[in-house]
Computed example of a mutant assay.
Amino acid sequence: MIGDVLTSSILFEALRKKYPDAELHYLIYTHTFPVVEHNPFIDRILLFDPVVDLKPNGLLPLLKKIKKEKYDLVIDVYAKINTAIISAFSGATKRISYYKKYTSGAYTHTFELLTSPKTSAGLAIENRMLLLTAVAKDFPAELKPKLYLTKEEISSAKALMKNAGIEVDKPVYMIGILGSSSEKTYPLKYMAEILNKIISSVPAAQLLFNYIPSQEKEAKELYNLCSPQTQQHIFFETYGRSLREFMAITAQCDALIGNEGGAVNMAKALNVPTFSIFSPQIKKENWSIYENEADHVSVHLKDYHPEFLTALSRKTLTKKAAQFYEQLKPNLILAKLNTFLQTNSSGKIAELKQIQ
Protein backbone atom coordinates (compact mmCIF):
# COMPACT_ATOMS: atom_id res chain seq x y z
CA MET A 1 0.00 0.00 0.00
CA ILE A 2 1.03 3.59 -0.54
CA GLY A 3 1.42 4.32 3.18
CA ASP A 4 3.61 1.26 3.65
CA VAL A 5 5.91 2.14 0.76
CA LEU A 6 6.24 5.77 1.85
CA THR A 7 6.92 4.82 5.47
CA SER A 8 9.49 2.18 4.53
CA SER A 9 11.42 4.77 2.51
CA ILE A 10 12.93 6.01 5.79
CA LEU A 11 15.25 3.00 5.66
CA PHE A 12 16.94 4.45 2.59
CA GLU A 13 17.69 7.75 4.28
CA ALA A 14 19.15 5.91 7.27
CA LEU A 15 21.26 3.57 5.13
CA ARG A 16 22.46 6.35 2.83
CA LYS A 17 23.68 8.49 5.71
CA LYS A 18 25.62 5.61 7.23
CA TYR A 19 26.81 4.06 3.97
CA PRO A 20 27.07 6.94 1.46
CA ASP A 21 28.64 4.75 -1.24
CA ALA A 22 26.09 1.93 -1.04
CA GLU A 23 23.88 1.03 -4.00
CA LEU A 24 20.30 1.09 -2.71
CA HIS A 25 17.37 -0.46 -4.61
CA TYR A 26 13.67 -0.50 -3.75
CA LEU A 27 11.23 -3.20 -4.95
CA ILE A 28 7.67 -1.82 -4.84
CA TYR A 29 4.26 -2.24 -6.41
CA THR A 30 3.91 -0.26 -9.64
CA HIS A 31 1.08 1.97 -8.42
CA THR A 32 3.10 3.20 -5.43
CA PHE A 33 5.96 4.65 -7.48
CA PRO A 34 4.78 8.30 -7.22
CA VAL A 35 5.46 8.45 -3.46
CA VAL A 36 9.16 7.62 -3.90
CA GLU A 37 9.70 9.47 -7.16
CA HIS A 38 12.64 11.90 -6.89
CA ASN A 39 13.71 10.42 -3.54
CA PRO A 40 17.44 11.28 -3.43
CA PHE A 41 18.35 8.33 -1.20
CA ILE A 42 17.17 5.63 -3.65
CA ASP A 43 19.45 4.68 -6.54
CA ARG A 44 17.08 2.39 -8.42
CA ILE A 45 13.43 1.41 -8.20
CA LEU A 46 12.28 -2.05 -9.26
CA LEU A 47 8.59 -2.25 -10.06
CA PHE A 48 6.45 -5.26 -9.15
CA ASP A 49 3.32 -5.67 -11.26
CA PRO A 50 0.99 -8.17 -9.55
CA VAL A 51 -0.96 -8.75 -12.77
CA VAL A 52 2.21 -9.99 -14.48
CA ASP A 53 4.62 -11.03 -11.75
CA LEU A 54 2.19 -13.17 -9.76
CA LYS A 55 1.31 -15.39 -12.70
CA PRO A 56 2.80 -18.91 -12.60
CA ASN A 57 5.31 -18.00 -15.30
CA GLY A 58 5.72 -14.40 -14.16
CA LEU A 59 7.59 -14.65 -10.87
CA LEU A 60 10.57 -16.62 -12.22
CA PRO A 61 11.86 -13.80 -14.49
CA LEU A 62 11.68 -11.42 -11.52
CA LEU A 63 13.54 -13.89 -9.30
CA LYS A 64 16.28 -14.23 -11.91
CA LYS A 65 16.49 -10.45 -12.20
CA ILE A 66 16.87 -10.13 -8.43
CA LYS A 67 19.49 -12.86 -8.21
CA LYS A 68 21.51 -11.27 -11.01
CA GLU A 69 21.97 -8.13 -8.90
CA LYS A 70 24.05 -10.10 -6.36
CA TYR A 71 22.75 -8.14 -3.40
CA ASP A 72 24.73 -8.17 -0.16
CA LEU A 73 21.70 -7.27 1.93
CA VAL A 74 17.96 -7.69 1.55
CA ILE A 75 15.47 -6.09 3.97
CA ASP A 76 11.96 -7.48 3.56
CA VAL A 77 9.49 -5.09 5.19
CA TYR A 78 6.47 -6.71 3.55
CA ALA A 79 7.11 -10.10 5.18
CA LYS A 80 4.74 -12.13 3.02
CA ILE A 81 5.22 -15.50 1.31
CA ASN A 82 6.01 -13.94 -2.07
CA THR A 83 8.63 -11.60 -0.66
CA ALA A 84 10.11 -14.40 1.44
CA ILE A 85 10.61 -16.36 -1.78
CA ILE A 86 12.23 -13.33 -3.42
CA SER A 87 14.46 -12.76 -0.39
CA ALA A 88 15.61 -16.38 -0.25
CA PHE A 89 16.21 -16.55 -4.02
CA SER A 90 18.27 -13.34 -3.96
CA GLY A 91 21.22 -15.18 -2.47
CA ALA A 92 22.06 -12.15 -0.31
CA THR A 93 24.44 -12.85 2.56
CA LYS A 94 22.17 -11.08 5.02
CA ARG A 95 18.37 -11.28 4.71
CA ILE A 96 16.28 -9.45 7.30
CA SER A 97 12.56 -9.45 8.05
CA TYR A 98 9.93 -9.94 10.75
CA TYR A 99 9.47 -13.34 12.32
CA LYS A 100 6.72 -15.57 11.01
CA LYS A 101 6.90 -19.29 11.53
CA TYR A 102 6.09 -20.14 7.91
CA THR A 103 8.65 -17.76 6.36
CA SER A 104 11.46 -17.55 8.91
CA GLY A 105 13.63 -20.00 6.96
CA ALA A 106 14.02 -17.46 4.15
CA TYR A 107 15.97 -15.05 6.35
CA THR A 108 19.22 -14.89 8.28
CA HIS A 109 17.83 -12.41 10.82
CA THR A 110 14.25 -12.02 12.03
CA PHE A 111 12.58 -9.77 14.60
CA GLU A 112 9.39 -10.00 16.60
CA LEU A 113 7.16 -7.01 15.88
CA LEU A 114 7.06 -4.42 18.65
CA THR A 115 3.58 -4.14 20.13
CA SER A 116 3.85 -0.99 22.24
CA PRO A 117 5.27 2.28 20.86
CA LYS A 118 8.14 3.82 22.77
CA THR A 119 8.11 7.21 21.02
CA SER A 120 5.72 9.54 19.23
CA ALA A 121 6.99 8.07 15.97
CA GLY A 122 4.60 5.14 16.38
CA LEU A 123 4.99 1.45 15.70
CA ALA A 124 5.04 1.77 11.91
CA ILE A 125 8.28 3.74 12.22
CA GLU A 126 9.77 1.90 15.19
CA ASN A 127 9.29 -1.56 13.68
CA ARG A 128 10.96 -0.51 10.45
CA MET A 129 13.94 1.00 12.23
CA LEU A 130 14.15 -2.19 14.30
CA LEU A 131 15.13 -4.12 11.16
CA LEU A 132 18.23 -1.96 10.76
CA THR A 133 19.64 -3.17 14.07
CA ALA A 134 20.67 -6.33 12.22
CA VAL A 135 22.94 -4.13 10.09
CA ALA A 136 24.39 -1.86 12.78
CA LYS A 137 23.49 -0.61 16.24
CA ASP A 138 23.96 3.12 15.78
CA PHE A 139 21.15 4.06 13.41
CA PRO A 140 18.82 6.83 14.63
CA ALA A 141 15.85 5.65 16.65
CA GLU A 142 13.40 7.30 14.29
CA LEU A 143 13.12 9.19 11.01
CA LYS A 144 10.22 10.93 9.31
CA PRO A 145 9.05 9.90 5.83
CA LYS A 146 9.43 12.63 3.23
CA LEU A 147 8.02 13.39 -0.19
CA TYR A 148 10.01 15.23 -2.84
CA LEU A 149 8.05 17.56 -5.11
CA THR A 150 9.59 19.45 -8.00
CA LYS A 151 9.36 23.22 -8.40
CA GLU A 152 7.29 22.64 -11.51
CA GLU A 153 4.78 20.46 -9.64
CA ILE A 154 4.40 23.05 -6.89
CA SER A 155 3.97 25.91 -9.36
CA SER A 156 1.41 23.95 -11.34
CA ALA A 157 -0.61 23.17 -8.20
CA LYS A 158 -0.59 26.81 -7.11
CA ALA A 159 -1.77 27.90 -10.57
CA LEU A 160 -4.52 25.27 -10.60
CA MET A 161 -5.82 26.44 -7.23
CA LYS A 162 -5.64 30.10 -8.19
CA ASN A 163 -7.52 29.47 -11.43
CA ALA A 164 -10.21 27.65 -9.43
CA GLY A 165 -10.73 30.76 -7.30
CA ILE A 166 -9.14 29.36 -4.15
CA GLU A 167 -7.72 32.11 -1.93
CA VAL A 168 -4.56 30.90 -0.22
CA ASP A 169 -4.73 33.66 2.39
CA LYS A 170 -7.80 31.89 3.78
CA PRO A 171 -7.79 28.39 5.33
CA VAL A 172 -7.72 25.55 2.79
CA TYR A 173 -8.45 21.99 3.92
CA MET A 174 -7.99 18.80 1.93
CA ILE A 175 -10.70 16.32 2.92
CA GLY A 176 -9.94 12.60 2.79
CA ILE A 177 -13.52 11.63 2.04
CA LEU A 178 -12.94 7.91 1.44
CA GLY A 179 -10.78 5.18 2.91
CA SER A 180 -8.92 2.57 0.87
CA SER A 181 -12.04 0.37 1.09
CA SER A 182 -15.64 0.61 2.24
CA GLU A 183 -14.65 -0.97 5.57
CA LYS A 184 -12.18 1.86 6.13
CA THR A 185 -14.51 4.69 5.17
CA TYR A 186 -16.23 6.81 7.80
CA PRO A 187 -20.00 6.94 7.02
CA LEU A 188 -20.70 9.71 4.52
CA LYS A 189 -23.62 11.03 6.58
CA TYR A 190 -21.22 11.48 9.50
CA MET A 191 -18.54 13.02 7.29
CA ALA A 192 -21.08 15.55 6.07
CA GLU A 193 -21.73 16.56 9.68
CA ILE A 194 -17.99 16.96 10.18
CA LEU A 195 -17.71 19.24 7.13
CA ASN A 196 -20.66 21.30 8.31
CA LYS A 197 -18.90 21.74 11.65
CA ILE A 198 -15.70 22.84 9.92
CA ILE A 199 -17.53 25.58 8.07
CA SER A 200 -19.38 26.71 11.18
CA SER A 201 -16.10 26.86 13.14
CA VAL A 202 -14.02 28.38 10.35
CA PRO A 203 -16.45 30.33 8.11
CA ALA A 204 -13.68 31.32 5.69
CA ALA A 205 -12.57 27.71 5.12
CA GLN A 206 -12.28 26.29 1.61
CA LEU A 207 -12.70 22.53 1.19
CA LEU A 208 -11.11 20.26 -1.42
CA PHE A 209 -12.15 16.63 -1.85
CA ASN A 210 -9.56 13.90 -2.33
CA TYR A 211 -11.05 11.47 -4.85
CA ILE A 212 -10.39 10.01 -8.29
CA PRO A 213 -12.85 9.96 -11.22
CA SER A 214 -14.01 6.41 -10.43
CA GLN A 215 -15.05 7.68 -6.97
CA GLU A 216 -17.03 10.66 -8.24
CA LYS A 217 -20.36 9.04 -7.34
CA GLU A 218 -19.39 8.74 -3.67
CA ALA A 219 -17.88 12.23 -3.68
CA LYS A 220 -21.08 13.68 -5.13
CA GLU A 221 -23.14 11.79 -2.56
CA LEU A 222 -21.14 13.39 0.24
CA TYR A 223 -21.47 16.81 -1.39
CA ASN A 224 -25.26 16.41 -1.52
CA LEU A 225 -25.38 15.40 2.16
CA CYS A 226 -23.67 18.64 3.18
CA SER A 227 -25.66 21.74 4.06
CA PRO A 228 -26.17 24.36 1.31
CA GLN A 229 -23.85 26.67 3.24
CA THR A 230 -21.08 24.06 3.34
CA GLN A 231 -21.55 23.27 -0.36
CA GLN A 232 -20.65 26.87 -1.16
CA HIS A 233 -17.22 26.26 0.37
CA ILE A 234 -16.47 23.02 -1.53
CA PHE A 235 -14.36 23.24 -4.68
CA PHE A 236 -15.67 19.98 -6.08
CA GLU A 237 -13.96 20.13 -9.47
CA THR A 238 -10.53 20.88 -8.03
CA TYR A 239 -8.76 17.63 -7.22
CA GLY A 240 -5.56 15.78 -8.03
CA ARG A 241 -5.80 14.06 -11.42
CA SER A 242 -2.72 12.05 -10.46
CA LEU A 243 -1.05 11.05 -7.21
CA ARG A 244 1.74 13.57 -7.76
CA GLU A 245 -0.76 16.35 -8.46
CA PHE A 246 -2.69 15.42 -5.30
CA MET A 247 0.53 15.70 -3.29
CA ALA A 248 1.38 19.07 -4.80
CA ILE A 249 -2.11 20.43 -4.07
CA THR A 250 -2.10 19.03 -0.54
CA ALA A 251 1.23 20.72 0.11
CA GLN A 252 -0.56 24.07 -0.33
CA CYS A 253 -3.30 23.21 2.19
CA ASP A 254 -3.47 24.13 5.85
CA ALA A 255 -4.50 20.61 6.87
CA LEU A 256 -5.75 17.26 5.66
CA ILE A 257 -8.84 16.02 7.49
CA GLY A 258 -10.56 12.69 6.97
CA ASN A 259 -10.13 8.95 6.74
CA GLU A 260 -6.82 7.52 7.94
CA GLY A 261 -4.74 5.99 5.17
CA GLY A 262 -2.21 6.76 2.48
CA ALA A 263 -3.37 10.35 2.01
CA VAL A 264 -2.76 11.09 5.69
CA ASN A 265 0.73 9.60 5.49
CA MET A 266 1.49 11.70 2.42
CA ALA A 267 0.28 14.85 4.16
CA LYS A 268 2.52 14.11 7.14
CA ALA A 269 5.45 13.58 4.79
CA LEU A 270 4.73 17.05 3.39
CA ASN A 271 4.58 18.58 6.90
CA VAL A 272 0.88 19.34 6.46
CA PRO A 273 -1.17 19.04 9.69
CA THR A 274 -3.55 16.07 9.80
CA PHE A 275 -6.73 15.10 11.60
CA SER A 276 -7.46 11.46 10.83
CA ILE A 277 -10.36 9.14 11.60
CA PHE A 278 -9.26 5.53 12.11
CA SER A 279 -11.41 2.61 11.04
CA PRO A 280 -12.39 0.26 13.91
CA GLN A 281 -10.25 -2.69 12.74
CA ILE A 282 -7.00 -0.75 12.49
CA LYS A 283 -4.75 -0.57 15.54
CA LYS A 284 -4.27 3.12 16.10
CA GLU A 285 -0.88 2.66 17.77
CA ASN A 286 0.51 1.13 14.57
CA TRP A 287 -0.19 4.11 12.30
CA SER A 288 -0.58 7.13 14.57
CA ILE A 289 2.78 8.33 13.26
CA TYR A 290 4.29 11.39 14.97
CA GLU A 291 1.04 12.42 16.60
CA ASN A 292 1.31 15.16 19.19
CA GLU A 293 -2.28 16.32 19.82
CA ALA A 294 -1.47 19.55 18.00
CA ASP A 295 -0.61 19.39 14.30
CA HIS A 296 -1.15 15.62 13.97
CA VAL A 297 -4.26 14.30 15.71
CA SER A 298 -6.41 11.21 15.27
CA VAL A 299 -9.54 9.61 16.66
CA HIS A 300 -10.57 5.98 17.02
CA LEU A 301 -13.67 4.33 18.42
CA LYS A 302 -11.57 2.86 21.24
CA ASP A 303 -10.79 6.41 22.41
CA TYR A 304 -14.44 6.77 23.39
CA HIS A 305 -15.88 3.26 23.69
CA PRO A 306 -13.07 0.76 24.27
CA GLU A 307 -15.60 -1.70 25.64
CA PHE A 308 -17.04 -2.18 22.14
CA LEU A 309 -13.77 -3.57 20.81
CA THR A 310 -12.65 -5.76 23.69
CA ALA A 311 -11.54 -9.27 22.66
CA LEU A 312 -12.72 -8.89 19.07
CA SER A 313 -10.50 -10.06 16.22
CA ARG A 314 -9.56 -7.83 13.30
CA LYS A 315 -11.55 -10.15 11.04
CA THR A 316 -14.67 -9.60 13.12
CA LEU A 317 -14.13 -5.86 13.31
CA THR A 318 -13.65 -5.65 9.55
CA LYS A 319 -16.79 -7.68 8.92
CA LYS A 320 -18.81 -5.43 11.23
CA ALA A 321 -17.02 -2.16 10.41
CA ALA A 322 -20.23 -0.37 9.44
CA GLN A 323 -21.86 -1.36 12.72
CA PHE A 324 -18.93 -0.08 14.79
CA TYR A 325 -18.56 3.10 12.73
CA GLU A 326 -22.15 3.93 13.68
CA GLN A 327 -20.92 4.20 17.29
CA LEU A 328 -18.25 6.79 16.39
CA LYS A 329 -20.75 9.60 16.14
CA PRO A 330 -19.56 13.06 15.09
CA ASN A 331 -20.53 14.63 18.42
CA LEU A 332 -17.85 12.49 20.09
CA ILE A 333 -15.01 13.98 18.07
CA LEU A 334 -16.16 17.53 17.35
CA ALA A 335 -14.48 19.07 20.40
CA LYS A 336 -11.14 17.56 19.42
CA LEU A 337 -11.65 18.63 15.82
CA ASN A 338 -12.49 22.19 16.85
CA THR A 339 -9.28 22.45 18.88
CA PHE A 340 -7.33 21.13 15.90
CA LEU A 341 -8.93 23.68 13.57
CA GLN A 342 -8.18 26.57 15.89
CA THR A 343 -4.60 25.40 16.41
CA ASN A 344 -3.87 25.02 12.71
CA SER A 345 -5.85 27.92 11.30
CA SER A 346 -5.42 30.58 13.97
CA GLY A 347 -2.94 32.62 11.96
CA LYS A 348 -5.17 32.98 8.92
CA ILE A 349 -8.31 33.44 11.03
CA ALA A 350 -6.65 36.22 13.02
CA GLU A 351 -5.48 37.84 9.80
CA LEU A 352 -8.97 37.70 8.33
CA LYS A 353 -10.50 39.20 11.47
CA GLN A 354 -8.05 42.08 11.24
CA ILE A 355 -8.98 42.62 7.59
CA GLN A 356 -12.67 42.61 8.47
Rank of each mutant, 00 (worst) to 15 (best):
K67I: 09
F33H: 10
F324K: 12
N259A: 13
K70M: 02
K189F: 12
E112M: 12
M247Y: 04
L309C: 08
R16S: 09
L147R: 04
I349V: 13
E183H: 06
T274F: 05
Y148F: 15
L195I: 01
Y19S: 03
T274W: 09
N286G: 00
I75W: 00
F308D: 14
K353I: 13
K101Y: 01
V36Y: 10
H109M: 08
E245H: 07
S97P: 04
Y173D: 07
Y29M: 06
N286T: 10
L178N: 04
N344Q: 13
K94V: 06
K336C: 09
P34G: 08
D303Y: 05
Y26A: 03
F235W: 06
K94T: 14
L114Q: 10
K64P: 03
L54R: 07
H233R: 11
S298T: 12
K144R: 06
T339K: 02
A159I: 14
L46W: 15
L195T: 01
I234C: 01
L225W: 07
Y186P: 15
S345A: 12
T115C: 01
T185A: 03
L27M: 06
Y99C: 03
Q232R: 05
E285K: 15
K158N: 11
Y19R: 05
H38Y: 15
K65E: 09
Q354M: 12
T103Q: 04
S181I: 05
L54I: 08
Y186S: 13
E193L: 01
N259I: 13
P187S: 07
D254S: 12
Q229I: 08
P40L: 03
N196I: 02
K70F: 00
G91M: 12
I212P: 00
V74M: 04
I199N: 00
V264D: 03
T119R: 15
A335Y: 04
E326I: 09
K283C: 07
K55T: 14
T343P: 01
E152V: 14
L143K: 13
E13Q: 15
F48V: 02
N344M: 09
I199V: 11
T318G: 13
A124I: 00
L62S: 00
A22T: 02
A269D: 10
T119A: 11
L208M: 13
F41Q: 01
G165P: 02
K55P: 01
D303L: 04
G258N: 12
A88D: 01
H31F: 11
L337N: 08
